[in-house]
């Protein structure tokens, strides 16, 4: 085996190992392997309070991820937050009376949107809006209500 050939093989092995490592980072370490590529369609939902919901948070149905939050903005006309969700196109049968609520993963985990399908046979189309929503649970409000309730009990 000539010297050049040996160098070529060693360098080739190095490049291959490096590229395999990059591929491994992509598929095994990061979310690229499990990312739902391809098409999504947008649906909207208005919430009184989105709590700590962030763009890219998952949208789930029965606990299964069916989409991602694409955009969040404030609608100055009706004083509510509009959450734009991208639903993967294979989940194209979301009933139009679906109920959207903001949930928290665990006690202190990140927040995500949960969809509870309704019974309607009409499905949501791209750009349509979910009518029934439930705001995020804000811990301070809950504690406030609890203390207020206790105080009222004490006053009796």
């Amino acid at each position: 085996m000539s010297k050049t050939r040996r160098i070529e093989i060693l360098v080739g092995a190095f490049m291959a190992a490096g590229l395999v490592a990059l591929f491994f980072l992509a598929m095994q370490v990061s979310n690229l392997g499990s990312m739902h590529g391809g098409d999504t369609y947008k649906i909207l939902a208005r919430f009184d309070n989105i709590g700590g919901l962030k763009v890219k948070a998952p949208v789930t149905m029965a606990g299964v991820e069916v989409g991602r939050v694409l955009d969040i903005y404030y609608d100055a006309k009706d004083f509510r937050a509009v959450v734009v969700m991208g639903i993967y196109s294979q989940f194209d049968a979301v009933p139009d009376d679906t109920f959207a609520k903001i949930l928290t993963a665990g006690l202190l985990g990140e927040q995500y949107v949960g969809l509870d399908p309704g019974g309607s046979s009409v499905v949501l189309k791209a750009g349509s809006e979910i009518a029934v929503t439930q705001s995020a649970l804000v811990l301070e409000d809950v504690i406030g209500q609890f203390i207020y309730g206790k105080a009222q009990e004490g006053a009796k």
Binding site: L22, V29, S30
Partner: peptide, 19 residues
């Protein structure tokens, strides 16, 4: 170990920026 890693590490935000 692997599932948490895959769900939290983002390809473009984490890996590509590292590269």
């Amino acid at each position: 170990y692997w599932a948490q890693m895959q769900s939290q590490i983002d390809w473009s935000d984490d890996v590509v920026n590292g590269v």
